Amino acid sequence: MPDTQSRGLTARQAAGKRAMDIVVGGAALVLTAPLSAAAIVVARRDTGESGVFAQERVGRHGRIVRVHKVRTMRSSTTVTTSVTTSGDPRITPWGRRFRAWKIDELPQLVDVLRGRMSLVGPRPDVTGWADRLTGEDRLVLSVRPGITGPASLAFRHEEELLAAAEDPEAFNRDVIWPEKVRINREYVETWSLRGDLRYLARTVLAVFRRDQGTGSGLTRPAPP
């Protein structure tokens, strides 16, 4: 098997990335704490369950970690797919708003400070997806999963894309997933602290602009 780690972050780069997570993530946690708390209360009333949703995901080096989000979906015995489209009946009215404004991601700032996640990186996948990475693609697992990142920005309208697909699960498996892997692998190979800061800035701008359209993400994303 190729030595993929040799093209990942150096120890110095990893330390710089972690320092940014602590400083910027800590500041963001303090600033957004009131909003996060309010969203959790609303989510509890909206879903009838705990306002915080915890799920096991595949983290750095393939280790299983628990990550947290504001709950945006009701439990369902009839819909069992892990692929979520924009018209998914499980998404609550407030949940749809939280997802549009990325408010549901705010509890993950705690996961960042605990070292389970990073502010920027590949999104953490459920088991059954990250497990499929082989060969050089496993370089993606050499960094902590992120709240945002190049693939997240490229596929910011992913739910709309899946809703338009004839077979959402097949489209996710055969088209979206391979492209995300390519983007995330390139992110690790070309990582820079400046790039992470730019991805954070682009994420904030994307949220406030609430740009319309379906941005397929199927072309090479703009460089950081």
Rank of each mutant, 00 (worst) to 15 (best):
D3W: 10
L9A: 07
A11F: 09
A19Y: 07
G25R: 02
A27R: 01
A28C: 09
L29Y: 04
L29M: 08
P34L: 11
S36G: 09
A37D: 02
D46E: 15
G51M: 12
Q55F: 08
Q55P: 06
G62D: 00
R63L: 08
R63S: 07
R63T: 11
R63Q: 10
V67I: 13
K69F: 02
R71A: 11
S76P: 05
T85F: 07
R90E: 12
T92W: 09
P93H: 06
R96T: 12
L109N: 08
L113T: 03
L113V: 05
G115I: 04
R116S: 12
S118C: 04
V120E: 05
V120Y: 05
D125Q: 14
D131E: 10
D131Q: 01
R132M: 04
R132T: 14
R132W: 01
G135S: 12
E136Q: 11
D137T: 05
R138Y: 03
L141H: 04
S142F: 01
S142R: 11
P145N: 01
I147P: 00
I147M: 14
T148H: 07
T148M: 08
A151M: 08
S152P: 07
S152K: 02
L153Q: 13
F155M: 10
L161Y: 00
A163I: 04
A163L: 06
D167I: 02
P168I: 00
F171L: 01
N172Y: 15
N172I: 00
I176M: 14
W177D: 11
K180W: 14
R185P: 03
R185C: 02
Y187K: 01
E189L: 14
T190M: 09
S192T: 15
L193V: 15
L193K: 06
D196I: 01
Y199T: 14
L200C: 12
T203W: 04
R210E: 14
R210D: 15
Q212K: 15
T214L: 07
G215P: 01
S216G: 15
S216T: 15
P221T: 09
A222H: 01
P223C: 09
